[in-house]
Amino acid sequence: MPAPVQLTEVRKVYGTGPSAISALDGVSHTFEEGTFTAVMGPSGSGKSTLLHCAAGLDEPSAGEVSLAGTTLRGLTETALTELRREQVAFVFQAFNLMPALTVRQNVALPLTLAGRSPDHAWVTEVIRRVGLSDRSGHRPGELSGGQQQRVAIARALAARTAITFADEPTGALDTQTALEVLTLLRDQSRAAGQTIVMVTHDPVAASYADRVVFLVDGRIVAESASPTAEGVAAELARLSRSSLKVTS
C-alpha cells in the first residue's frame, strides 16, 4: 500500500537567472500512514514550501509528489481539487473561515462541499475538544483570533481525512489551548490513522509529534524520532550555528 505522502527529489525554484531562489533542493521523504511529523528549520529553510508542494498547493520545479497513492504531476486542476477535497484537510495561519457561517457550520463545511453528510455527533465532539462548545452558534467576527484558529483546527479534524497538513497551527493560541490541540492532533494520528504533517517553529509543539524532520537551505539534514522539546531546541540551535558558519 503506497504511503499517504511521498516526495521524491522535489525541487522548487522561484524566479530565473541570477536572481533565482532555490526553496527546495532535492527533498525526498515518505510520510507514513498514522504518523505525526513536525517539519522544522531556521527561517527561510523551505518549511512552508515543502508543505505546499506536498499538499499539491504549489507545483515543484522538478521531482515527484504522490498524495494518497496518486502522482500529482499531470493532474488537471479539477482532479487535484477533488483529490484534496477527499483526502486532505488543512490548517493554515490564515483561518479561511466563512464570515456568514456559524462555528458549527464552518466546521461541517468541507464535508458538505464534498457531498458527504456530516457526522453531527463527531462535529459536536471536535468543537467540544477545541473548547468552543459555548461558541458553536457564533460567527467568526464574534470570536478572537485564537478562537478562530480553533475553529479551523476543528474543521480539519471533523473531515476525518487520510492526511492533514498544518502550518503553525498553534501560533495564535494560548499555552493551555495549544497543548490541548496538539494532544488532539496526536490522538487523531494514533487512533484514527491520520497522517499529519505540521510545520512549526516551537520545540514544545514539535515534541508532540512522532518524528521531527529538520530542513536547512531546502534540504533535509536531520531527523529525530520520539522528540523532546529540549532535544529539538538543541538541534535547532546547532543547525542555526552551522548555517551561519556556512554563510559567513
Rank of each mutant, 00 (worst) to 15 (best):
L239A: 14
V5F: 04
E235K: 13
R219F: 08
V10Y: 00
T195Y: 03
E230F: 12
A178R: 04
A94P: 00
G15Q: 12
E82K: 13
R238P: 05
H201P: 15
P2M: 13
P18Y: 00
D25L: 12
A54T: 03
G17I: 11
E77C: 12
R116A: 08
A158S: 09
H52E: 03
T49W: 04
D210F: 06
V123T: 11
A100M: 15
G44Y: 13
W122A: 08
E82S: 14
G141N: 09
H201R: 03
A233Y: 11
Q147V: 07
G115A: 11
R150I: 05
T164D: 00
G193E: 12
L215P: 02
A23H: 04
A38T: 09
T35V: 09
A154R: 02
S45V: 06
M198D: 02
G74S: 09
G41F: 00
G63D: 03
R104H: 11
V65D: 02
E180K: 04
T76R: 08
L182T: 05
V13I: 15
R128S: 04
H120F: 05
G44T: 15
V91H: 01
A159W: 03
R139P: 01
V13G: 01
V199F: 08
V39R: 01
A229H: 10
V91K: 04
G131I: 09
E142Q: 10
P203W: 06
A209L: 09
N106E: 10
D119H: 13
R150D: 07
V88M: 03
S207N: 04
R190P: 10
E235W: 00
T112P: 01
A234L: 09
A55M: 05
C53K: 00
M1V: 12
P169V: 07
G115F: 04
L75I: 11
E82Y: 02
G46T: 13
R211G: 09
Q149E: 11
G44C: 15
A209N: 04
R128N: 15
G74Y: 11
A121L: 06
I163D: 02
R219K: 14
R128T: 15
E32M: 08
A54F: 05
Q147G: 07
V246R: 13
G56V: 13
A3M: 07
P18E: 01
A191G: 02
P169W: 00
A89Y: 01
P4Y: 00
L132I: 09
T70E: 12
V10M: 08
T247Y: 13
L97Q: 07
A233P: 06
Q176I: 14
H52T: 12
D187H: 10
E82W: 07
A54V: 08
E230A: 06
A152W: 01
A209S: 14
V181I: 15
L109V: 10
V212C: 15
E180H: 02
S66I: 10
G137Q: 12
T183M: 04
A237S: 14
T177R: 05
V10D: 04
T124Q: 11
V91N: 01
K245F: 02
V204T: 15
Q105W: 01
G69Y: 09
S66G: 12
